[in-house]
Simulated assay, not measured.
Amino acid sequence: MRRYGSCLLLVLVGAAVLRISLFSELYLRYVQAGLRPYLVVSGGVLVLLGVGMAVVRRTVDDHEHADGHEHGHGIGGPRVAWLLTLPALALLLFPPPALGSYSAEREAAQQAAQGVGTFPALPAGDPVELTLGEFGSRAIYDSGRSLKGRTVRMTGFVTHGEDGTWYVTRLRVTCCAADATTSKVEVRGAADGAPPVDTWITVTGTWHPKGELGTDGAWPPVVDASAVRRVTEPADPYETR
Rank of each mutant, 00 (worst) to 15 (best):
V11P: 00
V13M: 08
V13I: 14
V13P: 02
G14P: 01
V17W: 01
V17N: 01
L18I: 00
S24R: 01
L26Q: 11
L28A: 05
G34I: 00
V41E: 02
S42P: 02
V47N: 04
L48M: 11
L48W: 08
G50L: 03
V51A: 14
V55N: 03
V56E: 12
R57C: 03
T59Q: 10
D61W: 09
D61Q: 14
D62A: 15
H63T: 12
E64K: 03
A66N: 09
A66I: 02
A66D: 12
D67N: 11
H73L: 09
W82E: 00
T85I: 11
L91Y: 01
S101Y: 01
E105P: 02
E107Q: 10
A113V: 07
P120W: 12
P127F: 14
P127N: 11
V128T: 14
L130N: 11
G133N: 11
A139M: 13
I140Y: 12
S143H: 09
R145D: 12
L147P: 15
L147Q: 12
G149T: 12
R150Y: 03
R153I: 10
R153K: 15
T155Q: 15
D163W: 01
R170T: 07
R170M: 10
R170K: 14
L171I: 10
T174C: 03
A177D: 06
T181I: 07
E186A: 08
V187L: 09
V187I: 14
A191G: 07
D192I: 01
A194L: 03
A194V: 08
T202M: 14
V203M: 05
W207L: 03
P209G: 06
P209D: 02
G211Y: 04
G214F: 06
G217T: 12
P221E: 05
V222I: 15
V228C: 03
V228L: 15
T232Q: 11
P234R: 05
D236K: 12
P237Y: 00
P237D: 06
